[in-house]
Design a protein around this nucleic acid. Sequence first.
DNA 1: TTTAGCACTCTGCTATCAACAGTGCTAATC
DNA 2: GATTAGCACTGTTGATAGCAGAGTGCTAAA
Lengths: 343, 343
Amino acid sequence: MEKRQKVILKEAISNYIQSAEPVGSKLLVEKLNFSVSSATVRNELKLLETLGFLKQVYTSSGRIPTDEGYRWYVDFLEGSNGLASVAPVNAQLEMIAVQKVKNTLNHVAKVMSSLMDYTAIVLTPDIYKMALKVVHMVLLDLNKVLVVLLNKLGDNQEFVFNLRQRMSQDDLNKVSQIITAKMEGLPFFESSDFVLRHLVKEFPNYASVFEVLSKEVERLSSFHKTSESINVHGVSKMIQLPEFKNVEMTKNVLTELEENRFLTELISSHIFGDDDGVVIGKEFNNEKLEDCSLVISPVKSGGVQAGAIGVLGPKRMKYSYVIPLVKQISDQVQHYISDQDGI
Amino acid sequence: MEKRQKVILKEAISNYIQSAEPVGSKLLVEKLNFSVSSATVRNELKLLETLGFLKQVYTSSGRIPTDEGYRWYVDFLEGSNGLASVAPVNAQLEMIAVQKVKNTLNHVAKVMSSLMDYTAIVLTPDIYKMALKVVHMVLLDLNKVLVVLLNKLGDNQEFVFNLRQRMSQDDLNKVSQIITAKMEGLPFFESSDFVLRHLVKEFPNYASVFEVLSKEVERLSSFHKTSESINVHGVSKMIQLPEFKNVEMTKNVLTELEENRFLTELISSHIFGDDDGVVIGKEFNNEKLEDCSLVISPVKSGGVQAGAIGVLGPKRMKYSYVIPLVKQISDQVQHYISDQDGI
DNA sequence: TTTAGCACTCTGCTATCAACAGTGCTAATC
DNA sequence: GATTAGCACTGTTGATAGCAGAGTGCTAAA
């Protein structure tokens, strides 16, 4: 592609992103201060159409970008330094200090959604894959035990279960030590089934606790697997955008946001891949989201996956703003999380 | 109002609820197997319109209910035994056993939304008003402390804070005992500021912990006050209903569901009132919700407020199904919660 | 009190038309 | 060979009109 074509394509796409109106040759000549006529631009546009970057809404309408067009645009922005640098958003993020990672990320999503008209998404840590650091068990009530799992990330997670027989806090301390010794470094929910069964035999006097705990963890796992680990903010602003006049599309997108299994898996898988973290239209491989785009950035802390933040909007998204914003915020959050854990 | 008028009004409203189409005199005669002509029904309809229960969409269209009409209808259903009895929904609710109340209620909302096309809302317990039973503090890390608040309801809530100086678990146990002794029965977040300041003087050797804790609680309070205590399921199904063709209305409702302060307060206040738990259209005193209705039922456990479940839908809601359903489910949940706490 | 009959009103759909934005093509020009 | 002016052509959009249909309100009779 020649330089002029690139300039025209870029201008056409960024114009459409702004106006949501198909752009024509005349407008482009004006915007670009070109010394060529609209007819020349028309020829170029036609070429860009055969290349698959632009399309017409109807015969002899102006052009709008195809998915491939957006993809080229995003790659172009990322290649050249077309991405605006975004000022840190300290002010609103400051209150996030000491918090559980999950709460922190949810708050971040709220702040982020206030900075644009799209939907902010956070994926909170996958507790199943987290390496255990230490287990604490606290006797809350006569027979109610709070289990606190502290992972290597410095983040904690709790759940409660009922004992069948009375135990003292001292006993629970011993049990906690036993479990910690066996499971340190392992992902708790994935390994506990095997380990606990083993412990039942090894420590017959605590067999009852291990059995109950084992069953409880199993039950919790199946419950957690079906429950949300995704959090969403700013839907109401997004659906005011012109593309959401289409009720069918709106319905589809909201459905995917509510029954979030697809998005959860997509984001999870993208976190570990090494792509640019932008998914455009058909790249979702999901009809319900084919009019949308998603910008994702993982949040790590001390080399461990702490979660991810992302932005879902129409394909006609202000990539030049959103991409650096998401990166900026994920960087900041990473610092906050690392700081508070002293890693 | 005479009997025939009541029959006509009831039939008109329930018909509109089913069809979403204005109902006319001819249709009513058919449906009711009346031995009178459509002209007679027309006269009655006119009367019902002057009484304020029905209105026309335009001159000489069929009738649709006014807010007052819906109100009459709901009161009528509740007065007569027009409310269908709903079979218990044990199957899906069984997995909720030992869980924190918050998780339980969220799960219930999901199940409930699967039973209809409206939005299920749950309000989780207001931690600010809960009477404290006991405080546990657990040393998680070198300087990280997990605070566990157990309330009279048997429900627990945790938060984490960082110590300024090293302390042993033994010290923390003492501190926990001191706080528990002072604050038992009080609402923790509302009282802790005052109590903790006092403890700083009373126990100089623990002054530092009490100070840090005090600041932390203050920070957490302001954070929690702005955070959600509401949870929502089934929006995507609801917006497929014909009333949500109107984009403006959809936008309004989604906004209120996202920035849920209004709904949160409304539901909270209704929990303690002694009305029937149905809010219709203008009764919201909120323009954004004036095309909606809300059915709420509180969830109590051992005399204490544990939260609330509700259903938000269009005014044209299947009250005869939703009202008993919500009550049925809230009863069931109440039993589950009470059972698990052994109260 | 009820009803048949009729004029009247407003919607919702379809067709038609003009304005217009923008294209594609051709032939002329640099 | 690249560029451009000119023009015919295409499809959208918005306004307007016409028409069938559903449903009412009113009147006069039963």
